[in-house]
């Protein structure tokens, strides 16, 4: 073994050692950056769990964080025409007056109606369950907006110029929460999850039985919004 070879061998074993401790790190970090050149995998399904008991009425830290992360900054004269990727909904049960508040965004369904109805296939679900709009082939027909049970999608009504380089968005196409796909692919959590001051949102891999989110869903009662539609949503709620 020459010197060079030995150096290579040492580096490789160090690398192996890192990989060996990676699962532990994995639990802490929720996600790992996917190596370059590797596609999203069917073995994962990204999801989110929102604990509405912790979600404070009047707090919209998640909404602000989303706007900053995704470059939602356009001035829109008519608020009805503004794009909203995530919004806070205040709920009140008329029967007993119980009130609570929760964030509503794309639920990243396993059976997304928006994908079913899209005439061109622009509305799509990535292998790891993230529902996206391929703006390259979106024709702006808005059929997905008609089909979405959560009003999660917005149509861009005016020209945009101040996009975040990592989050392209523009005139005449439909858009919605991407689960911060550009962050998730780097091993980070979505901006809203990171920003929540109450820690009410948990992000992780629903398919990994050891992940925080999967364990909590296995242990406590969680709800899918409009569960009657059997869409198998990736975003779950607790305490509705």
């Amino acid at each position: 073994m020459s010197n060079n070879d030995r150096r290579g061998f040492l580096a490789a074993s160090a690398g192996l050692g890192l990989v060996a401790i990676a699962p532990g790190v994995h639990l802490m970090q929720v996600a790992q950056a996917r190596p370059a050149g590797e596609p999203a995998s069917k073995l994962q399904r990204w999801g989110m769990l929102v604990d509405t008991a912790k979600c404070a009425t009047g707090c919209d830290a998640c909404v602000s964080a989303c706007a900053t992360e995704n470059g939602i900054n356009e001035k829109v004269a008519d608020p009805r025409q503004a794009a909203q990727w995530i919004r806070k909904i205040d709920l009140k049960d008329p029967k007993n007056g119980r009130q609570h508040s929760l964030p509503m965004m794309c639920q990243h369904c396993a059976e997304p109606p928006c994908v079913d109805v899209c005439p061109t296939g622009a509305s799509m679900k990535r292998a790891d369950g993230i529902v996206l709009v391929d703006r390259h082939i979106c024709i702006g027909c808005r059929y997905c907006m008609m089909a979405c049970p959560y009003k999660a999608r917005s149509f861009v009504h005016q020209p945009l110029t101040q996009q975040n380089p990592e989050v392209p968005r523009g005139l005449g196409c439909v858009e919605s929460c991407t689960l911060c796909v550009h962050r998730v692919d780097k091993g980070q959590k979505p901006a809203c999850v990171e920003a929540c001051p109450e820690g009410a949102m948990v992000f992780g891999d629903l398919e990994d039985p050891n992940s925080d989110i999967a364990r909590r869903i296995a242990q406590t009662a969680t709800t899918q919004v409009r569960a009657d539609l059997k869409l198998n949503t990736g975003v779950r709620y607790q305490g509705i």
Binding site: V117, C118, T120, G121, I139, V156, C173
Partner: peptide, 25 residues
Amino acid sequence: DLGRADRLVVAMTHFNPTSVFGWNV
């Protein structure tokens, strides 16, 4: 009325068989 009326060709060349709109195309 499409948001991207300039993409008529895309509508013609990309077809999603589960879409009722797609059938209509």
